[in-house]
Write a protein that binds this DNA or RNA. Structure first.
Lengths: 172, 172
DNA sequence: AATAGTATCTAGTTCAGCTAGTTATATACG
DNA sequence: CGTATATAACTAGCTGAACTAGATACTATT
């Protein structure tokens, strides 16, 4: 999906990184926006290369995590995690079983339920598409000096609060 | 939409902000993830409060920007900006005209075309839902010391590069 | 044992994208 | 000038992925 802010700012932006050495508030927000756009684009690329939508990708990755951690997950868990109905989850699992990323098998303890297990090929595919990028991101994060890391996390935390304060007026 | 990383990390995360004073790489990435989740949630809230999807919101904001800048935009411009077909754009404009956010009127120079203009109520609505939040974000950004601002923007720029390097292997 | 609760699945709907094709206008060229 | 081609918006009909409602199978409670 195209990013909101980015789509809106492509025209009328003439002051990007006006002063690289001494960025002001606008420059910081612009950097955040550019980052966000890159991330959105990356997601689009991955979805495309794996031929699936965002929800499907989330489902696979969640299943993989749980599996690796030795947990047993069911469609209900996926539906909770993804915030979609159990009915839609059935459809989602159908798709991912058909594409060979997941398998269904009887739940070990609850005979009403089903266990969802990622296949080896799903694992390989996700690792190949995401692994190197995550590593690069981690390298950047770890290359920060203690002071820089503190500044960055504090900034992100304060931005999070700025966004979370909901003063959204409902007037429908 | 639910955020990818967040959805995946709610289980198995026991070390969040283990050391607030001295964050390491993992803490930085976690802060980034939390920020991303807050942002996604904020978008969901806004879409809900305005009863529209992301594309619609992007379209309105783009129309508003262009209008304020004195530019004249057409459905074709929207379709290019949003990366959707002209047919879908017709549908999108239908929705937004029906909801009273946009109006169609004859294009001043091209008689094949149509001019898209945001209504005053759209302006008020968007300003009310986004204005205060943007102001809070700007306050955070401007409160950074020059050094902090530099650290933050450098970090974001490097993260952007980490994401943009596309090593995505297409093997379909 | 009966009742209530929970998990999954099926059927059918909706919404927002898509493609293909239509009409009206604009532009380019012989 | 007139004809061919290009472009803008729209219409009709399709699809994918969400939804609700309801069926079925099993579990848990009392």
């Amino acid at each position: 999906m195209v990013d909101m802010e980015t789509a809106m700012s492509t025209e009328g932006a003439g002051y990007w990184y006006a002063d690289q050495e001494n960025p002001g508030g606008v420059d910081v927000l612009n950097a955040l926006r550019v980052y966000r756009a890159a991330e959105a684009e990356m997601r689009r690329r991955i979805r495309e290369s794996m031929n699936m939508n965002e929800t499907d990708l989330m489902a696979i990755r969640y299943a993989m995590r749980a599996h690796k951690a030795g947990h047993c997950i069911s469609p209900k868990d996926l539906s909770r995690m993804l915030n979609i109905s159990t009915a839609s989850t059935t459809g989602l699992i159908d798709r991912l079983v058909a594409s060979g990323h997941l398998i269904r098998r009887p739940h070990p303890t609850d005979r009403r339920s089903v266990e969802i297990v990622p296949t080896g090929s799903a694992d390989i595919e996700v690792r190949e598409t995401l692994g190197e990028m995550h590593q690069r991101m981690m390298e950047v994060a770890e290359s920060l000096s203690p002071e820089e890391a503190l500044h960055v996390t504090r900034f992100l935390q304060r931005m999070t609060s700025a966004i979370e304060k909901q003063d959204t007026h409902h007037h429908a």
